[in-house]
């Protein structure tokens, strides 16, 4: 059953139409890979899916209801990995993750945090302050945040950045397990490695339509009006 949908989405940023006419549908256990050149709107689409931005037109829905109607309910069912790794330098790795995990589940679950850290091979760093971590270790901490509490929908913006092979492998394992439990994944990536039987959205296509003449100016006028 298709749960997470986007209908005829138009994304408009920095006085240009990034993409338009984009439609997707995602059911339990399914995954989407976002492909496209730099600036083709992969991150923008993921931010729209997360509800951090609003599409110029079109609707993103969860089981038929627009996510804009109840942002907090949508937040509760998604995990988002962006370009930054929000690891506070003065807090230890366990404290950093404990905070995010506790925001999602009423009772604090240190076991889940530790299990997530172990899974990504950084269990030994639990007591280390964030300022001593390398870029790759920070990324692992950020990914462990996703594993430490459950959510149906994972929105991953180039999650492999700065990861080594071993960590990438364990994270892909975690994605596979998430999907086998009925979870959904939307992931942007430039790497060749693909998720197993994932759909693919090539944002380049939607971009070219947008650039060809009248359509783009039409949307611009809508903004001004």
């Amino acid at each position: 059953m298709v749960k997470f949908t986007g209908t005829d989405l138009v994304c408009y940023r920095g006085e240009r139409t990034v993409f338009q006419g984009l439609t997707f549908g995602l059911g339990g256990g399914e995954a989407v890979m976002l492909r496209g050149a730099n600036g083709s709107g992969k991150s923008s689409l993921l931010r729209l899916m997360a509800g951090l931005g609003r599409p110029l037109s079109g609707v993103i829905g969860w089981q038929g209801q627009s996510i804009a109607d109840d942002p907090e309910a949508h937040n509760a069912r998604l995990h988002y990995i962006g370009h930054h790794d929000p690891v506070k330098p003065v807090l230890t790795v366990a404290e950093n993750l404990g905070f995010w995990a506790a925001l999602r589940s009423p009772k604090e679950d240190t076991n889940a945090v530790m299990a997530a850290l172990e899974r990504l091979g950084i269990g030994h760093l639990a007591g280390v302050p964030g300022r001593f971590l390398s870029a790759g270790q920070k990324r692992r901490v950020n990914l462990a945040r996703v594993l430490a509490s459950s959510a149906d929908l994972w929105l991953l913006d180039e999650p492999q950045t700065a990861l080594d092979k071993a960590a990438e492998h364990s994270f892909f394992d975690a994605i596979a397990e998430h999907r086998s439990n009925g979870g959904m994944v939307v992931m942007s990536s430039h790497a060749d490695k693909n998720l197993a039987d994932a759909m693919e959205i090539d944002l380049g296509k939607f971009q070219q339509e947008a650039r060809s003449g009248g359509a783009a100016t039409g949307t611009k006028q809508e903004v001004q009006a």
Binding site: A50, G51, L52, E72, A73, N75, A76, L78, Y80, G82, H83, H84, D85, P86, V87, K88, W100, L103, R104
Partner: peptide
């Protein structure tokens, strides 16, 4: 929080 991405995440919590 804005610079290190925490704010983004805070905005994406069920609060």
């Amino acid at each position: 929080d804005y610079e290190d991405g925490s704010l983004e995440l805070l905005a994406l919590q069920p609060i």
